[in-house]
């Protein structure tokens, strides 16, 4: 498959949509005939990014989470965007075990899991504007991880 395919889904920032988002991502990624492990890795990474948007981006309030899924060649890319509060210091937010909400039972492992399960993770954020997480995984390339 050479051509590029993209689907976009917008959904409300609610915790039960975390499952919805990762299932949609898994179904779309299935077009690349991934292994069970690759599907699980993608589901985990998507769940982390969407949960961050719900809890941190929109601080458990109202908002819309935008998900864009793209397949190009063997590359699967997922972009999770929110128009929420943004992250003042992205580098710090991505440090293992760092959490901006220590009292809220966050493990501080969200970004670490995204980086462990995807080949590339990039985060763009602007305070007051929102955050975009873009993650890519090559499907069918065991040994890369």
């Amino acid at each position: 498959m050479k051509e590029k395919e993209t689907v976009r889904v917008d959904f409300e920032s609610r915790s039960h949509n975390e499952q919805f988002a990762r299932v949609v991502a898994a179904v779309f990624a299935a077009r690349l005939d991934p292994t069970v492990e690759e599907v699980e890795d993608i589901k985990t990474a998507v769940s982390e990014a969407v949960t961050n948007a719900v809890i941190h981006g929109y601080e458990n309030g109202e908002g819309i989470v935008h998900m864009a899924l793209t397949i190009e060649g063997r590359a699967f890319t997922v972009e999770i965007r929110d128009d929420g509060v943004g992250i003042p210091d992205v580098k710090k937010a991505m440090e293992p075990l760092y959490t901006s909400k220590p009292g809220r039972e966050r493990s501080g492992m969200g970004f670490s899991f995204m980086e462990a399960f995807m080949d590339q993770v990039s985060v763009e954020s602007e305070p007051g504007k929102g955050t975009t997480v873009r993650m890519t995984r090559q499907i069918g390339s065991e040994g890369l991880l």
């Binding site: 699980e40 589901k43 769940s47 966050r106 493990s107 969200g110 670490s112």
Partner: peptide, 11 residues
Amino acid sequence: FMDSAGIGMLL
């Protein structure tokens, strides 16, 4: 399936 939120709950 479990993600880092599950780890947070266990902790």
